[in-house]
Simulated assay, not measured.
Amino acid sequence: MDASSVLESVLIGMADLFGVDGAALMLLDEEDRLRAVGATDDDGLLLESAQESVGEGPAIDSASRCDLVAIRDLHAASPIGYPHLAAYAAPVHAVLSVPLIEGAELIGVLDFYARVGHAWGPAEAEAGSHLGELLVIVLQVLAESRTDAPFSGQ
C-alpha cells in the first residue's frame, strides 16, 4: 500500500471514529503555505482547495494561531463564519480545524467537517486534538518509510 492510500485510509478511519462526515488534511509546503494533501471525499478536497485558493478559512486561521478553530457553520456571517469560503465549499457547513505540531513546529492542519451545522463541544475539541497528535505520528512513520525504502531508480 502506498503512502497516499495509507493516508486516505487513516483519514477515513479518523472521520468514522470521530462521527463526522469527513476529514481533510493540509500540510505546509516549502514556502510555509498550506496545501491540500488529502481528504476522505470530494467535499473535503473542495473545502481544502477552496481555502488554498481563497486564502482564508478555519484551517488558515488555525495555522496562523496554532490553535483549534471550531466553526459551527461556514455559511454564517463573519466573524463566526466564512461566507466567502462557503460559496466555494457549499456542501460543508461545520469545521473543526486542528493544528498539527511536530516538536515545536507547525506542519499542517487537520480538518474535520460536517455537511450540517454543528456546535463543537469541549469533548470534541479534545478528541480532535488527540486525533491530530495521532496523525502527526502517522505522517512521521510515512516520512521515515519513504527514506528507509531502497532506491528504486524512480
Score class of each variant (00 low, 15 high):
Leu85Glu: 07
Ser129Leu: 12
Ser129Trp: 13
Ile101Phe: 12
Phe112Val: 01
Val95Met: 07
Asp21Ser: 05
Arg146Val: 01
Pro79Gly: 10
Leu25Gly: 01
Leu17Tyr: 14
Ile60Gln: 09
Glu124Leu: 06
Glu126Ile: 11
Ala104Gln: 12
Val6Pro: 10
His84Gln: 11
Gly19Ala: 10
Leu85Met: 03
Ala36Leu: 02
Val6Asn: 11
Leu110Asp: 08
Ala50His: 00
Gly57Gln: 09
Met26Asp: 14
Thr40Tyr: 02
Val136Tyr: 12
Ile60Leu: 05
Glu52Thr: 00
Val95Tyr: 11
Pro122Val: 11
Ala76His: 13
Ser78Arg: 10
Ala24Leu: 04
Val109Asn: 09
Ile80Gln: 12
Phe151Gln: 14
Gly132Cys: 08
Leu100His: 08
Leu28Gln: 13
Leu100Gln: 08
Gly153His: 09
Gln154Pro: 07
Arg115Met: 00
Leu45Phe: 04
Val37Asp: 04
Ala63Thr: 08
Glu105Trp: 08
Asp41Glu: 08
Leu45Gln: 03
Gly108Tyr: 01
Gly128Trp: 09
Pro122Thr: 14
Ala36Glu: 01
Pro99Gly: 10
Arg65Met: 14
Ala119Gln: 15
Asp2Met: 02
Ser5His: 11
Ile80Arg: 07
Val92Trp: 01
Leu96Ile: 02
Asp111Tyr: 00
His84Cys: 02
Glu124Met: 06
Gly19Arg: 06
Ile107Met: 06
Ala70Leu: 08
Asp41Met: 01
Met26Gly: 14
Ser129Tyr: 13
Ala77Met: 03
Cys66Arg: 15
Asp29Ala: 01
Leu106Trp: 05
Leu100Ser: 07
Met1Val: 03
Leu46Pro: 01
Leu28Val: 04
Ala104Asn: 13
Leu28Asp: 14
Ala94Tyr: 07
Gly44Glu: 02
His118Gln: 06
Ala50Ile: 00
Leu85Thr: 03
